[in-house]
Design a protein around this nucleic acid. Structure first.
Lengths: 129, 129
DNA sequence: CTAGTTGCAAAGAGTTTGCATGGCG
DNA sequence: CGCCATGCAAACTCTTTGCAACTAG
């Protein structure tokens, strides 16, 4: 149902090596050094997204989609600090939550306006199908 | 710098009354009953986003942007449970985290694959400008 | 009054698709 | 070999913009 072609692998690895930032389809094409057409990039992004290996997001003030690597455990289950002014993301490689948030607040190097915790999984209804 | 016109208010209230789902620009225009042009809808969405009153997201498999209400405290600082199969979102009106996650896992009504906690705020660098 | 908002129509950008060719397993 | 992936170019769709008329404060 899905081959792991060298191109798709290259795309995936490009995303992996930029695991801290979300990249646009443009940037990804550029990273592949024009070894991939735009349409293939989009098709591969969509395939990888369907497999849960990356996450599509969006930047405020732009209509571009951004894609972020989520292929390894390292990129899961940890906290991001996202600056609502410059958009930069800082990663905390700590598993969860309450204690970490306390620490961050105490550090005062990042003033938290709002937190959002999303738990991804499968709900009861879907499990029974 | 920004007026709260009746149209903008209507748009905001439309989003508010659907606070559980993310709506597309289309759906929002429809909700306003053609009392607003598409361009105004986009401009208002962008204005409200800049004020942090809504959050732009994206649906997998589509190139549309989706917009979700984040205007009240109720919509902040709490956990979403997002089903990775059907995409439905369940809201837990509990402030944070560790204890809640434990409970959810114990309930076993939702099997968690992955969690993502984002703290929105302003970083050190941006604070000094 | 003045700065910001709206509608319209047109332009722009990002993304998707059809088809023929090439590659993986 | 058969099925999937790729490239190209064209087609789309969603979103943004210019301009003139209008409204909130």
């Amino acid at each position: 149902m899905s081959y792991m072609t060298s191109q798709r692998k290259a795309l995936f690895e490009a995303l992996e090596s930029h695991r801290d930032e979300a990249l646009s389809a443009d940037q990804i094409t550029a990273l592949l050094g024009e070894r991939a057409s735009r349409s293939a990039v989009y098709r591969n992004l969509s395939a990888l997204e369907a497999q849960g290996l990356l996450k599509k997001t969006t930047a405020s003030g732009s209509s571009k989609a951004l894609y972020r690597y989520t292929g390894s455990e390292q990129c899961r289950d940890h906290l991001h600090l996202e600056c609502s002014k410059c958009g930069r993301t800082f990663h905390l490689m700590a598993p969860t939550t309450d204690a970490v948030i306390d620490n961050v607040l105490r550090d005062a190097n990042f003033s938290i306006d709002r937190t959002s915790t999303v738990l991804y999984g499968v709900c009861e209804k879907c499990r029974d199908n």
